[in-house]
Design a protein around this nucleic acid. Sequence first.
DNA 1: GGTGTATGCCTTGTGGTGATAGGTATGTCA
DNA 2: TGACATACCTATCACCACAAGGCATACACC
Lengths: 112, 112
Amino acid sequence: MPPTPSTFLNGVPELLVLRLLRDREMYGYELVQAIREASADQLTFAEGVIYPLLHTLERDGALSTRRQTINGRSRVYYAVTPTGRERFDALSAHWRALTGAIATVLEAPRHA
Amino acid sequence: MPPTPSTFLNGVPELLVLRLLRDREMYGYELVQAIREASADQLTFAEGVIYPLLHTLERDGALSTRRQTINGRSRVYYAVTPTGRERFDALSAHWRALTGAIATVLEAPRHA
DNA sequence: GGTGTATGCCTTGTGGTGATAGGTATGTCA
DNA sequence: TGACATACCTATCACCACAAGGCATACACC
């Protein structure tokens, strides 16, 4: 009966991943926690969401990868490419436009 | 390659339908245009989205219906029930919490 | 009379995506 | 030894917006 856990979250993982990687390169496992921490535990996307997303973004040319072994564990660092930067800018603009429009409808005094 | 047209829109039709019906009862066809107009054409949900949604909300007890024939055409008016009102309040709160959290991540100066 | 447009309802099929639930492997610490 | 964190991955499911139709009546225009 209650809305599904993913209500309002369509597209959000991609938006946040690109946003965080805009600051600095990170690896998947790190991103999962970074999103949770940056949102004060309000946003949590599991690895099953992040890893496939990273693969898609890399395949689309939005991210580049760099492999590195640290303490015997292998990490795959992702960085935003110029294409990815454009993608983030477009996504971000889309996000602002939509949330603005929705706020307009929600806050309108009355709908005659 | 660009994000799908429905990016960021998961759950939004339900939120807006309940919001508009909170003001006054409306029928499906009317809601389709009301959403478009209330958002200055920035938000458009076709009948294929709205009608099934109305049926689901009615089945869940969030909406009640009233049939009326006007000018030979049959209309189905929908009104928010107390259950629907609660649902809207919950959805609305969820919306504000998520958009707030996302804004926090987006606008953070830097993610160390 | 015929044609197009608006009104008003509806359904089916598909694609995209977050969620769930696994699996594999190494390092660390009690 | 066992438990837990780290770090990668995949397959399957459920949900929902979208596209693309269908059906019927009213009305305007030519």
